[in-house]
């Protein structure tokens, strides 16, 4: 419990760090930060809206610390300002809507590739040196080494354009109204196939390699040898002795991988024109919509921290040595 509390405190500090970067960055740039942040819309913004935006981002009269506190205050009250491109929509609602799509896409892809990749890694390590191992290892190397941009473009080209099996964009058929109907959900699933396939291709290799290497490092441990000497079935030894223990370091590497997964997911969404954070962000970058760009850092950081916390909790559940501590 103390361990988890300590982690929570640390995450709070990390979130503050991201906010601090957001605060100082425009002020460190040459020129007038207010001009810089809101200029792309400056002319169209009504003066009172500009005033409230300035307040949100801490551009108030007074010393720097007062400005900083104002900004941090608005973040913790959930005010991330308004989008300039989609004025007057608040950043939170622009990003919040997109975040759901991203989480669905990313979450599903992460679970699928983690389960599948871990399983492949276990099998490859267990059949070390076999043809299965060689094929799995080499394929994983190739899959991990190709950037997500490239994988998504190639998947789009092959399955979207050349074979024309799947739609090339959007999360669902635009003519359908979002609802919990079979028609809508199946449309979402159908549109999700290619982005999902891309993300899984990008992610699965990393999980496979990590698990395989962890397993191989473990297979020489005494308790594995003892389990075999006990006459337990190969299955039991492989799953309950080797894989169960190799999963611990794999889970902690998952925490570090979440950043990469987020990045991959952003890029994939841009390529497939998927309405998630990636796409919103892409539009924001093209329009230099700074409130949205800054807001996504905070939301992404928060997502990453929540995911890290989930990993922490599952680590505690998986490793009895931590539970006592």
């Amino acid at each position: 419990m103390a361990f988890l509390l300590r982690r929570l405190g640390f995450y709070l500090a990390a979130f503050l760090a991201a906010a601090t970067i957001n605060f100082f960055l425009p002020r460190l740039m040459p020129g007038d930060p207010i001009q810089l942040m809101f200029s792309s819309a400056g002319a169209e913004l009504p003066p009172e809206s500009l005033e409230s935006l300035k307040l949100t981002f801490g551009f108030v009269d007074g010393p720097l610390w007062k400005q900083y506190l104002t900004y941090i205050g608005s973040i913790f009250t959930g005010d991330l300002g308004r989008s300039i491109k989609y004025f007057p929509l608040p950043v939170t609602s622009v990003l919040g809507h997109a975040l759901i799509w991203t989480l669905v896409l990313m979450g599903t892809a992460t679970i699928i590739s983690f389960v599948l990749g871990t399983w492949l890694g276990v099998m490859a390590a267990w059949k070390r040196g076999s043809r299965f191992d060689v094929i799995v290892s080499v394929t994983s190397i190739f899959a991990t080494s190709v950037p997500a941009v490239v994988t998504s473009l190639i998947v789009l080209f092959v399955f979207g354009f050349t074979l024309d099996w799947f739609p090339n964009g959007y999360a669902a058929d635009p003519s359908l109204d979002p609802a919990f109907t079979l028609q809508y959900i199946s449309s979402v699933a159908y549109h999700g196939v290619l982005p999902m396939l891309t993300l899984c291709t990008v992610l699965i290799g990393g999980f496979t390699v990590t698990m395989r290497n962890n397993m191989i490092n473990l297979l020489g441990e005494d308790y594995i040898v003892m389990a075999r000497a006990k006459g337990l079935s190969d299955r039991r030894v492989m799953l309950w002795y080797a894989a169960r223990n190799a999963l611990l370091p794999t889970v902690s590497s998952l925490a570090i991988a979440i950043g990469t997964i987020l990045g991959g997911s952003l890029v994939t969404e841009v390529v497939f024109n998927y309405p998630g954070l990636g796409n919103v962000l892409y539009q924001a970058i093209l329009a230099r919509d700074y409130p949205v760009i800054q807001g996504q850092l905070l939301i992404m950081t928060a997502t990453m921290l929540v995911a890290n916390f989930i990993v922490d909790v599952s680590y505690v559940l998986l490793d009895p040595r931590l539970k006592a501590a």
């Binding site: 640390f10 990390a14 996504q296 850092l297």
Partner: peptide, 20 residues
């Protein structure tokens, strides 16, 4: 170090690059 590890890299780079 640990702090930098939990702030997602690409989003951070996007913000930096966008301001630059």
């Amino acid at each position: 170090t640990n702090m930098v590890l939990v702030v997602p890299n690409l989003p951070l780079l996007l913000v930096l690059a966008a301001f630059i």
